[in-house]
Design a protein around this nucleic acid. Sequence first.
DNA 1: TAATCTATGGCACGCGGTGCCATGAGTAAA
DNA 2: TTTACTCATGGCACCGCGTGCCATAGATTA
Lengths: 251, 251
Amino acid sequence: MPQPRSTARTTAQRHRVRQELSAAAMHLFSTKGYEGTTVDEIAAAAGVARRTFFRHFRSKEEAIFPDHDDTLVRVQAVLDSAEPGEHPLDTVCRGITEVLRMYAESPEVSVERYKLTREVPALREHEIASVARYDRLFTRYLLGHFDEAQHRAGDDDPLLAEVAASAVVAAHNHVLRRWLRAGGKGDVEAQLDHAFDVIRETFGTGMGVGRSEQARPPAEPRGGEVVVAVARTSASPAEVLRAVEKALGAE
Amino acid sequence: MPQPRSTARTTAQRHRVRQELSAAAMHLFSTKGYEGTTVDEIAAAAGVARRTFFRHFRSKEEAIFPDHDDTLVRVQAVLDSAEPGEHPLDTVCRGITEVLRMYAESPEVSVERYKLTREVPALREHEIASVARYDRLFTRYLLGHFDEAQHRAGDDDPLLAEVAASAVVAAHNHVLRRWLRAGGKGDVEAQLDHAFDVIRETFGTGMGVGRSEQARPPAEPRGGEVVVAVARTSASPAEVLRAVEKALGAE
DNA sequence: TAATCTATGGCACGCGGTGCCATGAGTAAA
DNA sequence: TTTACTCATGGCACCGCGTGCCATAGATTA
C-alpha cells in the first residue's frame, strides 16, 4: 500500500504556483492585451521560469481557463453516479449545472475573462472547444441512456440525443452569458433552472420531463376533474397536441 | 464605373493556386500526418513559396477547410434574402443546408478530412470553431426575427432563439457525421430534411412548424375517426400531453 | 548516508505566423 | 512604345509558442 505519498506539501505548492500563474495571466491579458503579453512575462510575474508555465498549462490560452479539466471530470462523475431512476435529461442538466457553478464561484474573474473572450479570437475559440467537450460528454451519455429510460425507441434516438445535449448546453451558454453581461450579479443557478423549465415545456412531450413536476409547486390539484380531448384525426398530431396544450392553459 | 477590373485571369490563377495548396495539404496530412507535415512542405508540393501559403490561408489548419468562409457568406445571403412569409426556423434550416451541400459537393475529400479531424485535436477544434460561426449567425438571425413571426412573445425568446439555432446545427452535425462515417454514400440532404421533421415534431407546438405540413403528403386523412384521450387534471400538463400523444399513436 | 521521486530552471530547437521590401507580370493611360 | 499602377509572388528576418533534454535542489524512504 504505497501510502498517500506525502508529496502533500509539494502538491499544495503546485496548486499555488498554478493559481499565481493564472492570476498573473488574467492581469496581464487585461492590461496589456492577449497578443501583447508573452508567456515569459506571465512566468516572470508569477516568479517562475517560462518552462514551468508549460508544465502547468498546455497552452497560453489555457492559463485563464484553469478549471475546465477538473470540471470535466466532475461532470463525468455526476453522470456516472446518477441513480437509475432519474431521467437522463435531468442528469445532463445537473451535469451542466456543475459547469455553471464553476463560473459562478468567482464572478469577478469570470466577468473579466468574458471581456477577453469577446475580443480575442484565440481565447474565444479555446472556450468554444472547451464547452464542446461537455457537449460530447452529454451526447455520449444520452446515446447510452435513451433507449432504456425512453418510452419511444425509434431510429431517431441518436439524433435526439445529440439535439438534446446541444440544447442543454445552449441553455447554459445563454444563461451564463446573460449573467456575465450583467456583471455577474444575481442567482445564475436559479436562472438556469428556469431555462431548463422553458426547454422542457418547449420540447413538449417529445422528450422526457423530469424535475418540472417536482420542482413546480404541487400544481394546484384542481380537484378530481377529468380532461377529455377530442380531435379530428385528419389533423396532424402536432396540431392536436398544440390544441390540447392551449386548452390546458399553456402556462 | 471602374469596369470589371480585368484581373480576371490573375484571379483565376489565385484560385488555382489555392486549390493546389489545399489538395497538397490534404494529401500530405493523410500520408505523413498533420504534425509531421510542415507548411514549407505543403508550399513546396504546390510549387509556391511558404509565404504564399499564408497569403491564401490564415493558418495551417485552414488549408483543409478552404470553403468555410465562402459558405458563411452564402449562408448569410440565404438569411438576408428570405421572404418575409417564411418561418425563421425554416430559413435557418435552409441556411444550414447550404453548409451540408458544401460537404456533399466532394464526398471523397470530406470523408478523408473527417478521418483527420477525428484524430488531430487542432483540426477538430478548428472545425468546431467553424461551425460555431454558423451557430452565431443563426442565433442572431432568430433573435431578430422571433418577435415578429412568433405567436408567443415572452421574455424567453432569446433563450429559445439560441436553443433553436443550436438544435438545427446539432441536427446538421449528426446527419453529416453519420453520412461521413458511412463513407459519403447516399442522399444526405434528404436525411437532413428528415432530421428537420423529427426536430419539428419533437419540439412539438412550442416552436413554429413550417414546412412539415406542406412537405408531408396530405397525411392520410384517416377518414373522420375521432380520438379521445382522458386524464385526471391532477396530472401535470406534461403528463396529459403525453397521454394524448399516446392516444394519437405516438408514431 | 545513499537512493529515489518530484518540481523546477535553463538551454536549444523546430516551426507557425507576420512584417517588410523587392520583383515581375499584366493593364490602363500617356 | 513608354510610363505608371496594380497585384500576386518570392525571399528574407523576426517574434514567440511549444517541446525535448539535462542538470539541480528539496523532500522522502531505506
